[in-house]
């Protein structure tokens, strides 16, 4: 028994995982009630605070889409909820991507999807700066000082100066909030070159894949970022806070079951180790 578990063909593990994800999708059930983690709560609260702050609410919100379709399950759901939250408070915002060209399209698709619902109009209420290639550090550094110069034209080829929503937006001091949605460690650039480059630190929110979250906890603790959405789970909690359940809420059972399968397998692996040790022990070996 122990030996069989030890030598188990990994393809059986793969099949088991596939079933753990697929079956809860085919037979939907209600996911357990989510506990809201404090970083999600403060993410939500920060947007609320910016919206209620007369000094900040008229400034531009940056919704940075530093992700591509490959992490859409986590990032796109976070991004959509953040945009919905911003639109609810009628804040002006800009979509921009530095990490992946798909970011600008995914950002635009999200805006197209939500705009009619909230009466947002391109150019008047929001703008898409598009994708900026090149060294992200240099771009973000330049952005802090000169937004129109760094960005140049928007996604439709209009110079930023001619877009109503961009009137008076020069640099970091005209930005009210940065929401960085990312699949890689692009947060650092905002910390290093943008957040504290102006008169007052700009509130910075991070919605990221669960991997990047671990690295970001130190920044959360040091107060450099004000809130964080941790992967699909964070997206689900945020959906709960916004009271608009979506994809993240729907697939929560699959996430839970897959975790349990992995935990079960780990337990199985340790059982096999224990059994093989005991067998070795009874034969008099070490």
């Amino acid at each position: 028994m122990g030996k069989w578990m030890h030598d188990i063909d990994r393809r059986w593990l793969y099949l088991l995982l596939f079933l753990a994800v697929a079956l809860p999708m085919l037979f939907p059930s209600k996911g357990g009630s989510a506990v809201i983690l404090p970083e999600t709560q403060s993410f939500y609260d920060t947007v609320e605070r910016v919206a209620a702050d007369p000094k900040r609410r008229d400034k531009l919100v940056l919704l940075v889409a530093n992700f591509s379709a490959s992490t859409a399950t986590e990032n796109l759901n976070q991004y959509e909820s953040a945009m919905r939250h911003v639109m609810r408070h009628r804040l002006k915002f800009a979509i921009v991507s530095f990490a992946d060209p798909q970011g600008r399209e995914l950002g635009q698709q999200t805006a197209d999807k939500l705009a009619s619902q909230f009466g947002y109009q391109y150019g008047r209420d929001y703008v898409n700066w598009g994708f900026k290639t090149g060294d992200i550090a240099l771009n973000v550094k330049a952005l802090a000082r000169d937004i129109p110069g760094t960005i140049g034209k928007d996604i439709k080829g209009t110079p930023l100066g001619q877009i109503p929503v961009m009137q008076g937006v020069r640099g970091v001091d005209d930005i009210g909030l940065v929401v960085e949605t990312a699949s890689a460690d692009t947060l650092e650039y905002w910390l290093a070159y943008f957040r504290a480059a102006g008169d007052e630190p700009v509130p910075l929110l991070f919605s990221c894949t669960a991997v990047m979250a671990v690295e970001a906890y130190p920044f959360l603790r040091s107060g450099q970022i004000q809130g964080m959405l941790n992967g699909l789970k964070g997206a689900g909690e945020y959906e709960t806070l916004l009271q608009s359940p979506g994809f993240a809420t729907q697939v929560s059972p699959s996430l839970s079951w897959a975790h349990f399968v992995i935990l079960f397998l780990i337990a199985l692996g340790n059982l096999s180790l224990f059994l093989s040790r005991r067998r070795a022990g009874s034969r008099g070996g070490a």
Binding site: F18, V21, A22, L26, T71, T73, A210, V211, A213, L232
Partner: peptide, 18 residues
């Protein structure tokens, strides 16, 4: 923590297939 991120992507893909 990473397990959750990777599972999310798999969930996305399997949801696409199904």
């Amino acid at each position: 923590s990473t397990i959750m991120a990777r599972l999310s992507l798999l969930i996305g893909r399997i949801h696409f297939l199904l």
